[in-house]
């Protein structure tokens, strides 16, 4: 029983990371139509910014700085690199591919390829006893953050004008322009939000894994892609549900099956979902 509780909470912690990455990817893809391979770079930059700043100014400053660094990278990439290429979707993907290769290499040249020990608040290293299970507190940090982010995103999408524009743009962005709305400003916004969420995931991932390395973003990114496809492109709620399914499945199968079986089972799940429901779990992407 204690194993099940621990596995569940660990799986949900992982799901929280996947959700933070996937929701941004999903919005960027849903609205702007960009499959963003540089998303893992946003994550790594956020993670390294916090890692760099924490010993200087403490976590209270370093964490917001990491999130802001992710957001700023997202905005900058959209404005400088992606914007000139709208209406050329393949070139956009290619640019994000090049950026992810060059960006990881850049991080490597500055901070080396080896993992660096990551700072974390003292209380996150403690454990809480639930039933008979000893659960590390960092799990709750991840899960709690993801829940807050999910609620905030849904409120933003449903209660604000920009949220309305994003939801409509995911369905049909040409029509949004034809209503007299500058939909590209919303593109910058989703890139910024996606960058901020990826930066958050980078910081939390660093705390969760205990270390940060230049390639960390890329390896998380692939599972986040799977979450996005399973959840339905453009759907935040779909991403949340899919992240939970993927995180739990991966943890449980990895524990009870052979090592690596959990990762494989996630891909099998993806294949099944695509065969049964090609548009993903969310019936329409528009429900956000």
């Amino acid at each position: 029983m204690s194993t099940v509780i621990l596995l569940t909470l660990t799986g949900l912690g992982l799901a929280a990371l996947y959700f933070l990455i996937a929701s941004g990817l999903s919005l960027v893809f849903g609205l702007a139509g960009v499959l963003n391979f540089a998303h893992g770079l946003f994550l790594s930059i956020g993670a390294y910014a916090t890692w760099w700043a924490a010993p200087r100014w403490g976590l209270a400053v370093a964490v917001p700085l990491g999130i802001a660094a992710g957001a700023a990278t997202g905005a900058l990439v959209e404005v400088v690199l992606i914007r000139p290429l709208y209406k050329r979707p393949t070139e956009q993907v290619l640019v994000t591919v090049g950026l992810s290769l060059a960006g990881v290499a850049l991080l490597q040249s500055v901070w080396g390829a080896d993992p660096r020990t990551y700072p974390r608040p003292a209380w996150a290293s403690e454990v809480t006893t639930i039933g008979s299970a000893q659960v590390p507190d960092d799990r709750f940090l991840l899960i709690g953050t993801a829940v807050v982010v999910l609620l905030a995103l849904l409120a933003f999408l449903h209660k604000t004008r920009y949220g309305l524009i994003i939801r409509a743009g995911v369905e049909n962005r040409d029509m949004v322009s034809a209503l007299g709305i500058d939909v590209r400003r919303a593109f910058t916004l989703v890139f910024t939000i996606g960058g901020a969420l990826a930066g958050t995931a980078g910081v939390l991932g660093g705390m969760y894994f205990g270390s940060v390395s230049p390639g960390q973003g890329a390896s998380l990114l692939i599972f986040a892609f799977i979450v996005v496809v399973i959840g339905g492109l453009g759907s935040v709620t779909g991403s949340a549900v899919a992240a939970v399914v993927v995180g739990l499945l991966q943890q449980f199968v990895n524990y009870y099956g052979t090592a690596g079986a959990g990762d494989v089972s996630v891909v099998v799940l993806l294949a099944l979902v695509l065969l049964l429901r090609p548009s993903g779990l969310a019936r329409t992407a528009a429900t956000a």
Binding site: G98, L99, L101, A102, S109, V110
Partner: peptide, 17 residues
């Protein structure tokens, strides 16, 4: 970063696009 082949190749690639 110039010591990293992937940095140079990635940058070249973005410029080429």
């Amino acid at each position: 970063p110039l010591g990293q082949p992937l940095f140079i190749l990635g940058t070249l690639f973005v410029l080429a696009v």
